[in-house]
Simulated scan of single mutants.
Amino acid sequence: MIDLALDPGFGSAIGRGVGAIALYAVVGLVLMVFGFYAIDWTTPGKLSALVRNGCPNAVIVTAAGLFSMALIVVVAIYSSAGKLDEGLLSALIFGFVGIIVQVAAVRLLEWITRLDIGALIESDKFAPASVVVASAHVALGLVVAVAIS
């Protein structure tokens, strides 16, 4: 017979960990949803409908935006060094800053390159320029994430 001896605080540590996971998941989800709607609101056309309809450029740009938001949230959580309250607050603050920076930068990219983002994401055909817009999202997510750490 195997005798399993657990530390007295094991159960409460597991409970705190599960609670932290749930709270970070909620913060991450809120930021991702807010980020999606910020991109949708500032992009011509209805982004959610374009993604549902499988417009390849809309899917690429949206996926890159969500991926970059996840980078920001993950680094904010990691840099909190196990302090739940600071980690949640950092994730929220840096997440919202990241959303603002991404939206502004993509609009600036559109203006500088004279890209018609609306026509680009509404197209049923893949447009290589969508990779440029997606790359801008990921690059800015990396910049914000590194700035956090």
Rank of each mutant, 00 (worst) to 15 (best):
Val59Thr: 09
Val75Ala: 07
Arg107Trp: 12
Gly28Pro: 03
Gly19Thr: 13
Ile121His: 00
Lys125Gln: 15
Leu4Lys: 09
Gly19Pro: 10
Leu120Lys: 01
Phe67His: 04
Gly82Val: 14
Leu142Trp: 05
Gly141Cys: 04
Phe67Gln: 04
Ser123Glu: 02
Ser90Thr: 14
Gly15Asp: 09
Phe96Asn: 06
Met69Cys: 12
Ala119Asn: 10
Ala5Ser: 13
Lys46Ile: 11
Gly15Phe: 10
Phe96Gly: 10
Phe34Asn: 04
Ala63Asp: 06
Gln102Phe: 04
Pro8Arg: 11
Ile72Val: 15
Ile77Phe: 11
Cys55Val: 14
Gly95Cys: 05
Val133Lys: 00
Ala147Phe: 15
Gly82Lys: 12
Val101Trp: 01
Ala22Ile: 13
Lys46Gln: 10
Gly65Val: 02
Asp3Ile: 15
Leu89Glu: 04
Ala49Arg: 08
Arg114Lys: 12
Phe96Lys: 07
Pro128Arg: 08
Leu66Cys: 11
Val75Gly: 01
Val97Glu: 04
Trp111Asn: 12
Val73Tyr: 08
Tyr78Asn: 14
Val101Lys: 02
Trp41Met: 07
Val26Lys: 07
Asn53His: 03
Val103Tyr: 03
Phe34Glu: 07
Met1Trp: 11
Arg52Lys: 15
Val33Cys: 06
Ala91Glu: 05
Leu115Ala: 12
Ala25Trp: 08
Ala136Gln: 02
Arg107Asp: 11
Leu108Phe: 15
Gly118Glu: 02
Asp124Ala: 14
Gly35Glu: 05
Val132Asp: 04
Phe96Cys: 09
Met1Ile: 11
Ala104His: 14
Ser68Lys: 02
Gly45Arg: 00
Val143Cys: 09
Arg16Lys: 13
Asp116Val: 02
